[in-house]
Design a protein around this nucleic acid. Structure first.
Lengths: 233, 233
DNA sequence: TGACAACAATGTTATAAAGCACAAATTTAG
DNA sequence: CTAAATTTGTGCTTTATAACATTGTTGTCA
């Protein structure tokens, strides 16, 4: 975890999506009290069981949020992109972290001390409401994921994951390639299956001309079909 | 959905757990603007896809919150007891309900109109923060459930469900019988398995002297063992 | 350049859990 | 109080998926 000043990065004012509900004083307070941290690919940002010390904002890069389950199988819960917050749920609930966060690719994180974050939450109602909305949305996502992962069959789960990646990270200029390159293992951990099954099922999708593959590059060929597969389990 | 005045019921002041953070004005406002609704056993209180109109507080009885999944298999997400809130997540996230809520047994619900609820959230920071905490806790529960249900084996999932019921509803005077009587089907929907498997696995637990059964009455005999089963999957 | 490590692909086998069929018991309704 | 409906309990069969084993591919670095 390197800690150094940066230059080419978007300033916190542009990253922190709730900036506009802060008062000038709060804004200055944040500006004076955040730190910048850099993480290498695969470096862990925080870990299940630790006490939360900061709320974090992903300034650049991509990270995965996941839980360790039975026998070192891990389940990816969320994947974040620039501008998204994390690490604050545990602060609010007054618990230790219940997830691990690891950088997928080189990433930069802005951190705001927990007590400062809480203090703004406690004094600025619009700020507080903004996070209330965020958690309300995340909760619905989480419940939906539970049902997807438990009830859908392997093809449905993988199709779901591909659609989620597309929705979250978008497509490249060709209008087909998903803008994130995952290992088969991560793809498996996202869709609750073994790596072998992720590989197998991806190959099947290629044979059926639903997607195309080139290494980690995944192209969605027939989104309609993919959506159908995801629905029917 | 009957709507009538009540007498023997705890008043909203005692049920609404966030009452103490309300200002006298807000308190009066709520007192003047809530309604009371009675539901029979198995009656639906709200339904996936509907627009939320009220935040609700369970004044008496027990209800289940569940999602319909693939092929009419339903997954129970939460089970509520007296004093707990529901139906407000969708209001905050500005979405339709993503769950169904049904009364397990005859239940009474206090309802506060969505706009009134929002207006208090927007003006009373402590009230807003209180719900922020609630959602933060629920989110952790939901994520934990995802991993439990996807990664644990059938015995582990059922053991988990029994422990959850005990934690949530407590035990009767005998110090063993769980204070809620569920059908095998509901038990299955809670632990992501078929009814047959719930029955089978319960019988196994009885044979192993981990629990005892008498119809829907479930006694926990060896909680230590149950906890071990739940851990190991 | 060759050796090694990480990743990808695929066939085989073992097993957990779902599906199904049906009987018995219990609850609900007419 | 009986008939119907629902819930519960079991055995058998089938299926989905994990576990394992093997082999191929790519990239890295000494």
């Amino acid at each position: 975890m390197a800690k150094k000043p940066v230059s080419e990065l978007k300033p916190i004012e542009e990253i922190l999506s709730v900036w506009d509900v802060l008062t000038p004083d709060e804004r200055q307070f944040v500006r004076n009290n955040y730190t910048v941290h850099h993480y290498k690919k695969n470096e862990m940002i925080h870990c299940e069981g630790e006490l939360p010390t900061h709320m974090m904002i992903l300034a650049s890069g991509k990270v995965k949020v996941y839980k360790e389950g039975v026998g070192s199988r891990s389940q990816i819960i969320r994947m974040l992109k620039q501008g998204e917050h994390f690490g604050y749920r545990a602060i609010i609930a007054n618990e230790t972290y219940n997830t691990n966060v690891t950088a997928f690719e080189a990433s930069t994180v802005y951190m705001i001390k927990a007590d400062i974050f809480i203090s703004i939450l406690r004094h600025n109602n619009a700020f507080c409401y903004r996070f209330l909305e965020e958690l309300a949305t995340d909760l619905a996502d989480s419940d939906a994921r539970t049902v997807n992962l438990t009830q859908k069959h392997i093809r449905g789960r993988l199709a779901e994951a591909l659609l989620l990646l597309k929705k979250n990270y978008g497509l490249e200029e060709d209008g087909a390639t998903i803008c994130i390159y995952l290992s088969r293992e991560d793809l498996a951990n996202l869709s609750n299956m073994t790596t072998s099954n992720a590989i197998r099922t991806l190959s099947n999708f290629v044979n059926e001309h639903v997607i195309a593959m080139d290494g980690r590059k995944l192209k969605i060929i027939d989104e309609e079909r993919l959506r159908k597969i995801s629905k029917m389990g």
